[in-house]
Design a protein around this nucleic acid. Sequence first.
DNA 1: CGGCATCCTCCTGGATACTG
DNA 2: CAGTATCCAGGAGGATGCCG
Lengths: 129, 129
Amino acid sequence: MNAPARHVSPAGEVADPRVEALVNDLIGAVADKWTLLILEELEQAGTLRFSEIGRRVPTISQKMLTQTLRAMERNGLVSRTVHPVVPPHVDYGLTDLGQSLGAAFCGVWIWAEKHCDSVEAARERFDRR
Amino acid sequence: MNAPARHVSPAGEVADPRVEALVNDLIGAVADKWTLLILEELEQAGTLRFSEIGRRVPTISQKMLTQTLRAMERNGLVSRTVHPVVPPHVDYGLTDLGQSLGAAFCGVWIWAEKHCDSVEAARERFDRR
DNA sequence: CGGCATCCTCCTGGATACTG
DNA sequence: CAGTATCCAGGAGGATGCCG
């Protein structure tokens, strides 16, 4: 995901271009389908094992699961705890940063739930041409 | 974007599976990099022409611009007004639905601005291995 | 169990050229 | 100006197999 352009914060002031590139990049990294779904699951459950997350997000392949978890870990959103036992046991949980992101996305989930009918209606109207 | 699994709303109650699929699909449709950036621009400017949006989001190709605007229009997020003059003049603006989505994403932008340093730090820590 | 490596396919998305 | 059409490369992402 490359880093696009200019952004003026909701507060109104124009951001320094360096920060801005970072922010846009960050939005791209974080506003990802799998990231969002995993974030949701971890927020609900607190802590989950690798395979548990897979079960809760059935449409994700384990490749994407690994990949997404790794990216989230790199971005400081999740913590990964390996218990040195056989068979292996790895727990994933949200960091404080991850939890704050979950809270930030809460508004979007609510929006989606509230307006999914409107969107569906809009789609049908649009498609009828 | 296919439609994944189960979702429990922030309010806590388990959603009806039909709504749920829609919501997840909606998240996928809406949590898209270009959609977010265009949403931001239209929210700031109120109304923009096709080429003006392109100028404000320099990294977007005009193909993706057309495509994303069309999808947003279909989802009822933007309204498209064609002025029948030569040369053509087309205005794009947010609908009420689009504005409400912009408001919902506001929290995410703020999060990104507030925590981009933490994320960068986390990345450096992670990469140092 | 929780991965990583490999292979292979498809779709996204960029570049370019053409039109009303 | 605001698109549509075409071509093409690269990356996303699924399937499978192996390892600690």
